[in-house]
Design a protein around this nucleic acid. Structure first.
Lengths: 180, 180
DNA sequence: CCAGAAATAGACCGGTCGGTCTACCACCGA
DNA sequence: TCGGTGGTAGACCGACCGGTCTATTTCTGG
């Protein structure tokens, strides 16, 4: 199995989230992961771009997992949103406020090609679909659920940006009061 | 007078907004502005960082100008928000969808130092203050105005992100229906 | 136990990065 | 006319960039 591959993607993601695609050098990723260059190009033949895509994929999966964990045991949609935001705020604090949206930081400032934009767009759609799914599960109409999900997602992206600028995770924690 | 200085900041801002701080090389800015390297380091002694700060300042002023232009002649707060978003969407289209928040793209992916974060945080606060000011002018209570401004700002940041990922300015145009 | 594939290891490459430095030029008050 | 100054011009630098390449080690099926 390819444990090295996963480790590379995770560590790369960690760095991309803080400094953006262009802000991270291959050497830095290699050092953090404790992996030589040869291994990287073995597992990711097309190099940095491959790495970023894989890192974004992993980060996205983690976000979906957090959504599930937040809503599965919630008593209401508003309740789920609150749990979700608190979990994200905690994650933000763990990384000492240096982190933004895990996938947009990775992919947005990368090469402006179709592959990156498509991946980003797909991931965002998945997030909103998942949130809308829970909104409907809690009784909202399909239309309302779509709106709720979009409202939450857009504000969340904004919160990540603002929280990072202010170095304060409370921006994220105050989100439920603003969108519900 | 220093026309060169302004030109450098504007062109740098244009590029930073598309590719982020690390994604833009000094040489590229120089070529776009048609200015030799010596001039840059004459006007911006500490180089790229100075340039980014100046570029962000200019971009922020422009956003404030757009806010004023949108709300000054509006009949209601909601009306002003709509005009504001349409203006931004148009700006987004002019740049062929390659652009995000003009200041966050410039400063967020830059060196993670206090100066950059402070500048960003200050600029965002100015934007929200200005929006809140108009919300109050249209009759909202101070508290409500704060909330309205924050809601609009956060969603707007998110919209810029999503619009760029999807390459579709309609995300921004649909914002008023979501936050008002 | 061995052959071959998978993976690791890192030296090496041309190009580009941000930044420095010296030379020159245009303007302006004396 | 001259000295000085604010600005322009671009050659040049070491560091670092992403990526390639060959050699070696480790794993695995027969």
């Amino acid at each position: 199995m390819s444990d090295t591959r996963t480790k590379l993607a995770i560590e790369a993601g960690f760095l991309f989230q803080q400094k953006g695609y262009h802000g991270v050098g291959i050497a830095e990723v290699l050092e953090r992961a404790g992996v030589p260059k040869g291994s990287l190009y073995h597992h990711f033949p097309s190099g940095k771009a491959d790495l970023a895509l894989a890192a974004a994929e992993i980060a996205s999966t983690e976000v979906l997992r957090i959504i599930d964990a937040s809503f599965d045991q919630a008593g209401s949609y508003a309740n789920g949103v609150t749990t979700f935001c608190y979990k994200l705020a905690k994650y933000f604090d763990i990384h000492e406020g240096k982190i933004g949206c895990p996938v947009s930081a990775t992919l947005h400032e990368g090469p402006n090609n179709a592959a990156f934009r498509d991946a980003l767009s797909t991931i965002f759609a998945q997030w909103m679909d998942r949130i809308a799914h829970y909104a409907m599960a809690f009784g909202q109409s399909p239309d309302d659920a779509q709106r709720s999900a979009k409202r939450l997602f857009l504000s969340l992206e904004g919160s990540w940006t603002l929280a990072r600028a202010k170095g304060d995770s409370n921006v994220i924690r105050q989100l439920p009061a603003l969108v519900c």
